[in-house]
Amino acid sequence: MSADTLALPRGRGRSPRSLPRRRVWAGAAVALALGGVVVASLAVGTSEIPLGTVWHALTAYDPADPEHIAIVEKRLPRTVVGIIVGAALGLSGTLAQGVTRNPLADPGILGVNQGAALAVVAAITVFGATGPSSYLWFAIVGAAIAAAIVWVLSSRGRDGATPGKLALAGAAVSAALFSLVSAVLIVSREALDAMRFWQVGALAGRGLDVLVPVLPVLIVAAAVALASGRTLNLFALGDETAAALGLRVNRARLLLAIALVVLAAGATAVAGPIAFVGLIVPHAVRSIAGLDYRWILLFAAPTAAVLLVAADVVARIVARPGELQVGIVVAAVGAPFFIALVRRGRMAGL
């Protein structure tokens, strides 16, 4: 029986033959939505810029025109950062749920967010880091170390790093790291002032100078994630079945955990810990892509990019002339959306 057939909920009147057609329509809809939010991101801000001016700024840039400067030097890099960060969060969330077989998993389950946060606090208080570009690699290294600790703890024992042990070890390590971060912030006003905007997640002030250093590793990790569909499908059958079908379970889980950490840590380092994107996007995608992870991964990246860029556009509108942090908007939208998915019974079992 194919993964597509398994993906169809019983009693909903859907046929396996309808999956390819749904995927085509959904792909077209996601592509149009991504184009729409990109245009909105370039045109909407503290001041509205006509679409004609946006087009001219992109095709015939005039460095003496203030609106062209705002579009090309401010809004365009911010939009690119939003797309890349959103795609990375979507892929990392899908990997987290597939690797742990936990439908409530997100990148934070491996301690990624809190590991990055502790490293940023250390960068600020010990090394005097002053902005995202200066503590970028601290966040990545901190996230990787935290994930490695979770892996080592969960690997102890005869069964190795099982999904349940990964989730428990991740929760324990995250709680411990959160306590350390809170303790440092209580005694260090400098760290508190620098961390309070980073911790809620933001795209404001994030340009290509922050993205470019981490982009190569994000591309490699994204390629690994997109190629992992068959492996995640085998994980969904259980470790014993996957091993019987020839998969080296622990080696495959370690490789995908590394890709997960790189994607989540890179996104977190650039934009701060943005919640809910990696949690809700895989569930939303399963309603149109089925349970085949090859398709879930393919849809998750652009869908998450649409969500994050759209939230950033909303963040610029609702508090004019100022703006909210995008992490706040994503949380406000993501929490009720996820609750609605659960209540409608559309959250797929893994």
Rank of each mutant, 00 (worst) to 15 (best):
S2Y: 02
D4W: 10
R12I: 12
R21Q: 15
R22S: 10
V24L: 14
G27K: 13
G27Q: 13
A29T: 12
A29H: 04
V30C: 08
L32A: 15
L34I: 08
A40T: 02
A43W: 00
A43S: 14
G45I: 11
T46L: 04
S47N: 12
E48C: 00
E48S: 11
P50Y: 06
T53K: 13
H56S: 11
D62L: 02
P63F: 00
E67L: 08
E67P: 01
E73S: 15
V81Y: 06
A87D: 01
L91M: 11
L91E: 11
G93H: 03
G93F: 03
L95E: 14
G98D: 08
G98M: 03
V99E: 03
N102I: 03
V112Q: 02
G115M: 09
G115D: 07
A116W: 07
A116Y: 05
V121A: 15
V121Y: 06
I124R: 10
V126Y: 04
F127P: 02
S134A: 15
Y135I: 07
Y135C: 05
W137G: 13
G142M: 08
I145S: 03
A146Q: 14
L153Y: 04
S154R: 13
R156I: 14
R158D: 12
T162L: 02
G164Y: 04
G164T: 13
G170L: 13
A175E: 00
A175R: 02
L180Q: 05
V184T: 11
E190A: 07
D193T: 12
A194K: 15
W198C: 09
Q199P: 05
Q199D: 01
V200F: 06
L203A: 09
G207Y: 09
D209C: 00
P213S: 13
L215P: 14
P216W: 12
V217N: 05
L218I: 15
L218H: 12
V220M: 07
A222H: 02
A222P: 04
A223C: 07
V224S: 00
A227I: 00
S228Q: 08
S228I: 05
G229E: 10
G229W: 11
N233R: 03
L234I: 10
F235L: 05
D239C: 03
E240V: 10
A242D: 07
L247F: 06
R248Q: 09
R248G: 05
V249T: 15
A252F: 04
L256M: 09
I258R: 03
A259S: 10
L263C: 10
L263F: 05
G266F: 06
V270M: 10
G272V: 13
P273M: 13
A275C: 02
V277P: 04
V277R: 08
P282G: 12
A284L: 14
R286G: 07
R286C: 04
I288L: 11
I288C: 01
R294E: 00
W295K: 04
I296W: 00
I296K: 09
F299P: 05
F299N: 06
A304V: 06
A305P: 06
L307S: 03
L308N: 08
A310I: 08
A315Q: 04
Q325G: 14
G334R: 10
P336R: 12
A348Y: 03
